[in-house]
């Protein structure tokens, strides 16, 4: 039986999808700004954050309205509460994209330290993880969500690799590389945090579908 409520849930799904696409675009542009040294792209990312913040508030209010007015239970309740969490994770990812754009701006004025190899790999991974987490949410695909959760270790590994290289091959050997090496270390951390948020989203998707809490309990996957 079709309910009025179903239309509202569809709307919520659309809103989350819109939020996710804005956030994906922000990450893509921030990474490109870094790779290309493109000031305009970095500026676009920073400017787009306000729109994302506003959409976050709008989605949050919509969820609260649905809880107050429709008194959802079971899968409806899980969907709405997880949409709220996912919304918040997406907004945090957008903030990290802004952080990356700011690091890109810091680096633009300086000579290139080294060709970027692992950072683009980590950037690709973060974008893939986010895309798959959102696909899992939209298509209620629990297997895809689990795959995202399991990818998080790879992200940690890449971040460690980038950090070690920059610290031991550059900073330790020549302290004067710090203004160029430290922003890159931070970028690796920002990207790895994006992977963490994508993992959170995927864990929420598992809860939404299977009512099983896997956050902090990877053994339950």
């Amino acid at each position: 039986m079709e309910r009025i409520f179903d239309e509202e849930l569809k709307q919520l799904r659309q809103d989350i999808l819109m939020m996710a696409s804005l956030v994906e675009e922000a990450i893509f542009k921030s990474v490109e700004a870094l790779k290309q040294g493109n000031e305009a792209l970095a500026g676009e990312v920073i400017a787009s954050d306000k729109k994302i913040d506003e959409l976050e508030n709008k989605i949050d209010e919509f969820c609260l309205d649905l809880i107050a007015l429709r008194q959802p239970v079971a899968q409806d309740l899980r969907f709405i509460t997880m949409a709220m969490q996912i919304n918040s994770d997406l907004e945090r990812i957008a903030d990290l994209a802004v952080d990356i754009a700011q690091r890109a701006l810091e680096l633009i004025t300086q000579q290139v330290l080294k060709p970027l190899i692992d950072i683009p790999k980590l950037a690709n991974l973060s974008q893939t993880m986010l895309k798959e987490a959102i696909d899992a949410f939209i298509n209620k695909d629990v297997e895809l969500a689990k795959k995202v959760v399991l990818s998080d270790k790879e992200a940690d590994g890449l971040r460690d690799l980038v950090q070690k290289e920059l610290i031991y091959d550059y900073l330790v050997k020549d302290g004067r590389t710090a203004p160029r090496a430290v922003p890159l270390i931070l970028v690796a951390r920002h990207l790895e945090r994006i992977c963490d948020h994508a993992t959170n989203i995927a864990e929420d998707v598992v809860y939404m579908i299977q009512a099983k809490v896997v956050r902090h309990h990877p053994e339950k996957l």
Binding site: M1, R3, F5, P72, V73, A74, Q75, D76
Partner: peptide, 11 residues
């Protein structure tokens, strides 16, 4: 069937 009933999809 429980899910459908408590979420108002039953009917």
């Amino acid at each position: 069937r429980t899910e459908d009933y408590i979420t108002g999809r039953y009917g």
